[in-house]
Design a protein around this nucleic acid. Structure first.
Lengths: 159, 159
DNA sequence: AGGGCGAATGTTATGATATAACAGTCATAG
DNA sequence: CTATGACTGTTATATCATAACATTCGCCCT
């Protein structure tokens, strides 16, 4: 289990690790980590909270990297397709993957107070779902598991 | 395990059961199953596929039961809050619950070909997530588990 | 060199989903 | 009989997402 948004960690290190893995992976697979794509990943990696596409776009716009929605969506699509970023369905938002490079079926813990998202290995959970599907003759291709609740920090603040 | 969208079943029976349970539950709990709310549930119960709010609204409009988005969203909110309908996050759409009355944390199998949605008891799966959350100090309140894939019928058609 | 191709980006326009805010209706508890 | 609360009606607008077509640029082919 590597870092998640609830543990304190060296976040500078966390960011550079994410970027580095993305660069290596792209090199290996012949994918183009273009300036826009790289920058979007960097923006998302700043925080362990999910960010909407238009929020990302605001950054790009300020930096002259693009001003129209498709620019952001295309970069996000690329990053999601290649496993560098996850889409949080409940939030219609995106978050940088904290286990980049690992082949995984993540599950997410989403704090409804501070919007911090922690990523858990979801393999055991998704296996159960895949098995249940198979019994019904259903072929499971993707599983998304998203839990909403309150994170440790926000529980303290409330108490 | 009661009926799901992949098994053949007496769907007329399925619809009337859904409505009946909703009526009883509302009576017991002092909730108002108003005409709009009842009709929305009935509309969703027609099929085991998820329907968008605007699609539901089209029916209501034709029938003079409402013409503006809030009418549909309010009825859907009521039905979701009380467990008669589930929201499928991946699809931004809604589906009638097939286990009404049962206290459950469902998971869904969504066919990407025909959009049929099957509801599985998700309790064992969500328990795993809740446990993992607890270990991190996170209090899990809601878990949504949604799998995308291909249903038995569509697999046959493709083959 | 010139031409064609594919991948990425730029841009316009529009579609799809969702909610805030306030006004009107109606039953009923005081 | 009026005050309250739950529901509904309506307008306006916010938010999220993509279709479609134009442009750029590197690269391969001959």
């Amino acid at each position: 289990m590597t870092a998640n948004g609830f543990e304190t960690h060296d976040h500078t290190q966390c960011i550079s690790n994410t970027l580095q893995v993305a660069e290596e992976t792209c090199r290996e697979k012949g994918l183009q980590l273009t300036p826009v794509r790289r920058r979007v990943l960097e923006i998302l990696a700043q925080k362990h909270t999910a960010m909407g596409a238009y929020e990302v776009l605001d950054f790009l716009r300020e930096e002259g990297l693009g001003s129209q929605p498709p620019v952001a969506y295309r970069a996000l699509d690329f990053l999601v397709s290649n496993g560098f970023v996850h889409r949080i369905e409940r939030l219609n938002a995106f978050i940088a993957c904290v286990h980049p490079g690992e082949h995984h079926a993540p599950s997410f813990l989403i704090c409804r107070e501070c919007s911090t998202v922690a990523e858990l290995p979801g393999k055991p959970v998704s296996d159960v779902v895949a098995k249940a599907g198979t019994e019904l003759g259903f072929t499971v291709e993707k599983v998304s598991i998203e839990a909403e609740g309150v994170c440790p920090d926000c529980q303290e603040k409330t108490a």
